[in-house]
């Protein structure tokens, strides 16, 4: 493997007695598209939140481009990172949330330009131009002056993607980005992600329940259960020939649920 962009070294995360991440290690190559799947509560979302520095670690280390995320060196020793270090590290990471979390008091355009102006100090004119390019990429340039409340869920999520892209992160985290959407709005968001995958060399980690999309899109799939990686491999192997019993059980459940959902949709039509 080439030099990994993300190197997760035996991390654990506990909330009181509950162990959410159990001594996990894995690496992600630059430009890799990685799908994290597994039952709810398996810890996959927590990994994204740890990478975005929204959740602290109980133990272990995370390296981003060979640099400690949650720690820093002081006097030859590793100590917990301070806010300055975390601020610097966050520059290379962006995140899209399940519930969009757009800024409701700002227009679509301002949602995208805010970080450019405040974090990068880009002038208004340049920031607006850059934001319009990004809104164009997600197909929403015509909504620039609207407030998020007037958008559909799918449109909100596409704005959220544009907002996350504004700082040109090397790593993008997608946390169940279609789970809160009505079924007919899922594709417009997945199409934007597909386009990002084709047109950029960003490293993308996605937590998803869209097994079909994970299969097409990901270079590699990690299956999680109870805070551990049970199985990992290329999508063809995980989806057609899983080695572990727990993976098989999980896939059987979600795939049959998916089929029954498709059936009921067909009946509804």
């Amino acid at each position: 493997m080439v030099q990994p962009i993300i190197d997760i070294q035996s991390i654990s995360k506990c909330f009181g007695d509950l162990t959410v991440l159990d001594n996990l290690s894995f690496q992600v190559a630059p430009g890799e598209k990685l799908a994290l799947i597994g039952p709810s509560g398996s810890g996959k979302t927590t990994i994204l939140r740890v990478l975005m520095t929204l959740e602290t670690l109980t133990s272990g280390h995370v390296l981003i481009e060979d640099e400690q995320l949650w720690h820093m060196e002081r006097g030859g020793k590793l100590v917990d990172a301070d806010e300055t270090h975390l601020h610097k590290m966050r520059n290379s990471i962006g995140m899209v949330f399940q519930h969009f979390n757009l800024f409701p008091h700002k227009t679509v355009l301002e949602n995208v330009t805010l970080a450019l102006r405040l974090v990068r100090g880009v002038a208004k004119k340049q920031a607006d131009e850059r934001a319009l390019e990004l809104l164009d990429l997600v197909g929403l340039a015509d909504k620039r002056d609207q407030k998020p409340a007037s958008l559909s869920g799918g449109q909100k999520q596409r704005v959220a993607i544009a907002r996350a892209l504004a700082l040109e992160p090397k790593i993008m985290l997608f946390d169940e980005v279609t789970s809160a959407l009505d079924p007919e709005l899922v594709d417009e968001v997945l199409n934007v992600m597909r386009r990002l995958g084709e047109e950029t060399d960003m490293t993308m980690l996605l937590v998803t329940h869209e097994m079909g999309f994970a299969r097409d899109f990901a270079d590699r799939v990690l299956f999680f259960d109870k805070g551990r990686i049970i199985e990992s491999g290329p999508p063809e192997q995980i989806f057609t020939d899983p080695q572990e019993e727990r993976t098989r059980t999980f896939l059987r459940k979600v795939l049959s649920a998916g089929v029954s959902r498709a059936e009921s949709a067909a009946v509804a039509i």
């Binding site: 929204l54 949330f97 008091h105 805010l114």
Partner: peptide, 27 residues
């Protein structure tokens, strides 16, 4: 103010004072 607003502010790398000034208090 929902927790998601704080998290989104962090994800676009706003500092704490910027988050207060531009995201939390105006809402």
């Amino acid at each position: 103010i929902p927790r998601g607003q704080w998290e989104a502010s962090k994800a676009v790398n706003l500092t704490a004072p910027q988050t207060w000034q531009h995201i939390i208090l105006p809402q």
